[in-house]
Write a protein that binds this DNA or RNA. Structure first.
Length: 671
RNA sequence: GGCCCCAUCGUCUAGCCUGGUCCAGGACACCAGGUUUUCAUCCUGGUAACGCGGGUUCAAAUCCCGCUGGGGUCACCA
């Protein structure tokens, strides 16, 4: 296996087309290209392939750049990006610009040269004509190839029609010879000439096709090594032929295997659409769609009308309430369905609503707030607003129904995220942005991604294989020889394990910084409830108990509940407090008295206090720890007691103990 | 369907090039124990694979052929 070691002239590139977020497979390709360039001491280049005018967008470009930067895959040459104060990219080698749409002249130079040298020719068929021929070929079970009709036109006439501006494409004359790709990973791959036809190098709209642009750019930008997905393997002979025709050097190629879902299907953003679709299909019938539309509007409306905080608080409640009511609302349409949804809110038992306890208000406060908001703002009594609502409702409904009916259509990404949230489902992570939102750490993601296809083949001191490594390690040890040839399945469970490990490895300060930063973007209620400084003290409790930044919240969920709104787990209460002649309850009462006189509310001091108390009463730690735990959290499970109480603080702790004592005294002895 | 690539535990893989040290090693997951005031972490142990069939050879996971299976590709997308 020829694997160049250090070679400062090495240039690799990643060339995404900006038609959406960065796909996880693309991220892996970029990562390995980056690693290859780094281990050689060369340069990694980023180029934006935006020659598809219809599908490319500027926002996609920005998203892709940021996704790469977030992952720590920085490019030496390419579009400039200021990422958290660090400048990435630039054109120090003067081989830009790095957007293909800005390089049209360069492509036309190459194309004109090929035409002049009779290596390419204009063709005047319309797409429809070609499509018809293709269909004929398929019907006859013959592989379709372009028949060179345009090449039969005398050259003089071709040139004339070209000069006259007749709509045309330009085709490259594919040489009639086998082409061998010397792939560094797969070995030699030879393709026979019958597999190719005279492919198009310039489209009717004047833009080059991928094949031409990539060949010209790679050559002009000095790309020496091309690492890309195996889906490109069949394209490579075309590129090799173009390179020869244009007198360019041939870069070194390596085509890496693709990654798939655990079920073997392609990892596609469509999976997200499918996930939501299947839930909606099960949960919603016709009136359901109407209510989905109603909630959709309601959410927008509330988020505009109220401050961010209020909107965040009320929207989830209404969603949940609406969901319950959906099944009761049959055949109610338009504005009336909104009225029904809203009008019933305060008659519904809100205690079981999952989000309710997360915002630090008691049940009664909630109901009051909900009533006020609903009556004052949410319904909107003016005729204009009613008409406006009805119109938007109908639009929403049509769009949702249209989407559900057409299996090929895809709902807007933001809508999918929103709906998934409502129904409490987790969307499959497909794009880098999905992993960010789900609370993965970039170093865990890149570690896992690198290992999915590359193996360092190195042992740890204890004899196990090296699997956990940093970007620095990758950048200094990567080699094509360590890459696997087989396709692999993306195992989110193993990634999760890597992520949990990466989180546990953070210092409390780092963790707090990452967590708060994450929450600022993806869980604003959390970010507002706890400052970064608060999170430093939460870190010891949370770090080993969460696998992603997103599920950190569930660990400290007890702190989100109002002191008088705790929901007690009956079994836990019975086991810890009531069982055995209410011994637990008596101990709790006694401890409460001592705690009232105790002011050092730090985890260690509290632990010591509880321990001393247990000793003085001549009982095991558990005898007092569990009653206390149930008293302050309502459940038999929480972080270590010292941390739990310290997070709550003295006032809340005492208030909760009192509340629990009151609650338990009214409970029957038997369950 | 034509052409091309690939094939070790459920999953990711080491071993294959340079056949014997492999009744196949590691990781994740799973199961069973242990530590712990609960949960989590952590520790110990366990279940589990060379797709099938032919060769070559004293000897094959390792080399060759066929089959099967998986994937890619057949656009005025990239």
């Amino acid at each position: 296996m020829t694997t160049p070691q250090t070679n400062p002239h090495t240039v690799t590139r990643f060339a995404p087309s900006p038609t959406g977020h960065l796909h996880i497979g693309g991220a892996r390709t970029a990562l390995l290209c980056w690693a290859f360039a780094k281990q050689a001491g060369g340069r990694f280049l980023l180029r934006i392939e935006d020659t598809d005018q219809k599908r490319s967008s500027e926002s996609s470009t920005k998203g892709i750049l940021e996704d790469l930067a977030w992952l720590g895959i920085t490019w030496d040459d390419g579009p400039e990006l200021d990422y958290q104060g660090t400048a990435i990219g630039g054109d120090s080698r003067k081989v830009g610009p790095y957007y293909q749409a800005q390089r049209i002249d360069l492509y036309n130079d190459a194309i004109n040269r090929l035409i002049e040298e009779d290596k390419a020719y204009p063709a005047f068929e319309t797409p429809e004509e070609l499509e018809a021929k293709r269909k004929e070929a398929i019907a006859a079970k013959i592989g379709y190839k372009y028949d060179r009709t345009a090449l039969q036109i005398p050259k003089e006439e071709r040139t004339k029609r070209l000069a006259a501006g007749q709509p045309h494409v330009v085709r490259f004359i594919m040489p009639n010879e086998s082409i061998t790709v010397e792939d560094q990973l797969l070995g030699d791959v030879t393709i026979k000439p019958e597999e190719f036809d005279d492919f198009i190098i310039r489209k009717r709209d004047g833009f080059p096709t991928y094949h031409l642009a990539v060949t010209v750019d790679d050559a002009l930008m000095g790309v020496t090594h091309v690492l890309r997905g195996q889906e490109h393997l069949i394209n490579t002979p075309r590129h090799v032929a173009l390179q020869t025709a244009l007198g360019y050097d041939h870069p070194v190629y390596a085509h890496m295997p693709l990654i798939f879902n655990p079920d073997g299907s392609k990892m596609s953003k469509r999976d997200k659409d499918k996930a939501v679709r299947s839930i909606l299909k099960n949960e919603l019938d016709d009136p359901g769609v109407i209510n989905l539309a109603a909630r959709s509007i309601l959410t927008d409306y509330l988020e505009i009308k109220h401050s961010t905080v209020n909107a965040l608080i009320i929207a989830p409640i209404l969603r949940q309430v609406a969901r319950r009511i959906i099944k009761q609302v049959q055949g109610v349409t338009g504005f009336e369905s909104l009225r029904v949804v809203l009008g019933n809110t305060h008659e519904v038992d809100l205690s079981g609503v999952p989000y309710l306890n997360d915002y630090g208000f008691s049940r009664d406060e909630w109901i009051e707030k909900a009533k006020d908001w609903l009556v004052e703002d949410a319904v909107g009594e003016s005729p204009e607003e009613i008409v406006h609502f009805n119109r938007r409702l109908e639009e929403q409904k049509q769009s949702i129904v249209g989407w559900l009916k057409d299996k090929k259509s895809q709902a807007d990404q933001d809508k999918l995220v929103e709906w998934a949230d409502w129904f409490g489902i987790t969307l499959p992570e497909i794009e880098v942005e999905d992993f960010r939102r789900a609370g993965y750490l970039p170093e865990a993601l890149t570690n896992y991604l690198a290992l999915l296809g590359w193996n360092p083949k190195t042992k740890n001191d204890d004899g196990t294989d090296l699997e956990h490594f940093s970007m620095d390690y990758l950048a200094s040890h990567f080699s094509i020889a360590g890459m696997g040839k087989g396709q692999s399945k993306f195992d989110r469970i193993k990634l999760m394990s890597f992520n949990a490990g990466a989180i546990a490895a953070l210092t409390d300060e780092e963790f707090a910084s990452r967590w708060h930063h994450w929450a600022t973007s993806y869980d604003t209620a959390l970010a507002e409830r706890f400052s970064q400084q608060d999170m430093v003290s939460l870190a010891p409790a949370v770090k080993t108990r969460c696998k992603t930044l997103a599920d950190g919240r569930s660990v400290i969920g007890f702190a989100f509940i109002a002191d008088d709104a705790i929901v007690y787990d009956g079994k836990a209460v019975h086991k810890a407090l009531i069982k055995g002649d209410r011994k637990g309850l008596e101990l709790l009462k006694a401890f409460r008295e001592e705690l009232a006189e105790f002011d050092d509310f730090t985890p260690d001091a509290i632990e010591a206090k509880v321990s001393a108390f247990a000793e003085s009463k001549e009982v095991g730690m558990g005898k007092i720890a569990q009653p206390l735990r149930v008293a302050v959290t309502g459940a038999g499970v929480s972080p270590p007691l010292g941390q739990t109480l310290a997070i709550l603080g003295k006032d809340a702790t005492l208030a909760r103990i009192d509340g629990c004592i009151e609650h338990t005294q009214s409970e029957q002895t038997s369950v």
